[in-house]
Simulated assay, not measured.
Amino acid sequence: MIRIDSVTQPNIAGAASSQKAAASSTFADLLAEQAAKLAETAKSKQEDTPAASDQTTATEEKSMVNHRDELMRLLSMSPAELIRYQMLDEMGLTEESLKNLPYEERMKIEEMIEEEIERQLGSKEGIGDIAAQIL
């Protein structure tokens, strides 16, 4: 009695291994091509890197100048101006956007700012004294 699966197994395994060999050689070729493409891309990026780093440095310098200018502007503000700036910033407003608001809304915000300045710096007389000392 001959076993069918013992006879057919080697042929199936042989066919599968030859397909795997063909597939792996194709895969190996594709892998080699991709590695070559990546190497070319990396080489071209290295050539472009000095220009990119110069642009980054210029951007960083502009950012530092902007931060420095903003800090100097904040340091030159009087206490009342600083409180006003902080309150507007918390509300997500600038002086320009405040001017563009409707009159009633702008007056409410101005009143809130004035009350906060009085609260932090003292009475209105105290604000005048501080302003006189600064000037």
Results as ranks from 00 to 15, higher is better:
E105N: 04
P102E: 12
A23H: 05
I113P: 05
G14Q: 09
S97C: 11
G14P: 01
R106S: 08
A23L: 09
I2Q: 10
A42R: 07
N100C: 09
I113S: 05
E47V: 13
E96P: 06
E104F: 04
Y85E: 13
T94V: 07
M87D: 05
I2F: 12
T94N: 02
I109Y: 09
S25Q: 00
D89H: 14
L98A: 13
A39W: 10
K43R: 14
A36Q: 05
Q86W: 05
T57H: 11
K62N: 08
I12L: 07
E110T: 09
S24T: 00
L101H: 06
G14H: 04
S24D: 03
P10G: 06
D69Q: 15
M91L: 15
E96D: 13
E116M: 11
A51V: 15
E110N: 11
E70N: 11
M107Q: 10
R106C: 01
T56E: 14
I134P: 02
E33H: 00
P102D: 12
G128L: 08
E40C: 04
A21K: 01
A28K: 12
S6E: 14
H67M: 12
V7L: 13
A13K: 06
A13Y: 01
E81G: 01
A51E: 13
Q120T: 09
D129T: 04
K20C: 03
P10W: 03
I2N: 07
R3C: 02
Y85Q: 10
L82E: 15
A23V: 14
A21T: 02
Q86F: 06
Q86R: 15
P79T: 04
A21Y: 06
G126K: 11
E60G: 05
